[in-house]
Amino acid sequence: MKEPTSPTLPAVYSVNAQDAAIKEPSITSGQQHPSDTPRQDSGRVGEGLLRVLVYVLLCLAAVLMLMPLVWLVAATTKNSDDLLHYTFFATRPVSLFGHNFALLKPFSVDNFKALFAAIPFGRYMLNSVFISCTTVIIQLFFSSLAGFALAKYEFRGKKLIILLMLATVMIPTQVTMAPLYELIYRMGLVNTYPGLLIPSAVSVFGIFLFRQAILQVPDELLHAARIDGCSEFRIYRDIVMPVSRPMVGAFCLISFMGAWNNFLWPQIILHSNEHFTLPIGLNTLVGPQSQLYGALMAGTFLSILPVIVLFLLLQKEFIAGLTSGAVKG
C-alpha cells in the first residue's frame, strides 16, 4: 500500500494504524506461525489431509456465496427467450473438428432494453449518484472536522458532546423517523432532495472513526505547523486530512454504501418518480410478474456495479476502517 502523504510530510508520520491492520500480517508472518513449525512425521499425513479439507470447505463456501451473483450476471446477459430455459448462461452447440462443444451465446441487451423501457432507470441512477456523493461529501467534511476538534483540542463542553453522542448511538435510528418526518414536513421539504439529505448529514459513527484516527497523528506535527504560522483550519486541511487518507478512503466507501443502499427514509420522504433513488425505483419493478425479471436483474446488476468498483479501488482502506474500531476496542 502506498504511503498516503502529502509531499511535504515524511512518510513516517502517516497514520499507520490502519495500514498495520491490513497489511495481511498472516501472509508474510506465515512462516513464524506455530502450526508451521516442523512436526514429527506421523503428523504429516494428517496435516496434509487437513489442508485438503480446509481448501475443500473454503471452495465450497466460495461457490455457495458466489453462485447467486454468477446467476445474476447470467440472467442479466441472457436474451428473453433463454431466460427461463437455462439455469445459468445460455449456450449454443458448436461443431469443431467433429466434436460438439457448448459455447456461450453472445451477450444480449434485451434485458437492458426492457429495463429502460419499464422504468426511468437512468434518472434513478443519476439521483442515486447525486444523493450518495452529496451525502459522502457532507458527512466527510463535518465528521472529520468535528472528529479533529474532539481528538486534538481541549475545550469546554467536549466531554458533554462525546457523552451526548454515545448516548444516541445506542438508540436505533428508526425511533427518530416519525419526528424527523414531522420536522421535514414543517420545513416543507417532503419529496425534495434536501429533505432526503438532511437527516443523514450527521454521522456519529464517522466522528468516532475520525477521532480515533486523528488521535494517532503526532502532536509534534501540529505544533511544528503552528510555529510555522499555519492557521488551525490549514492544519486540518493540509496536515490532518492528508495524513488520515486511509481513514478518509474507508469512510467514503462506508458512507457511500450506506447512502446508496438507504431504503426506509427515501421510501418515506420521496413520492414522485423523478426523485426516486435506485432502491426505491427498482423496488417498483419487484412483483410476481415474471416476464420482467430479466429487466429487474439487469437493473440490480447495474445498481451494484458502482459499489463493487469502488470497493475494489478502496478495498484495503475499507476493511481497515471497518475493523479498526472493533479490533482495537
Binding site: 463535518f142 465528521s143 472536522l145 468535528a146 479533529f148 476538534a149 474532539l150 483540542y153 475545550f155 458532546i161 451526548l164 453522542m165 444516541t168 425511533v175 427518530t176 419526528p179 424527523l180 420536522l183 438532511i198 437527516p199 448529514a201 450527521v202 456519529v204 466522528i207 488551525e232 486540518y236
Partner: peptide, 16 residues
Amino acid sequence: FVSPFLILFVLFGAWP
C-alpha cells in the same frame, strides 16, 4: 470545527 456538526446533530439527531 465542532459547531456545524453539533448544530445538525442537535437538530436532526438529538432533538428528534
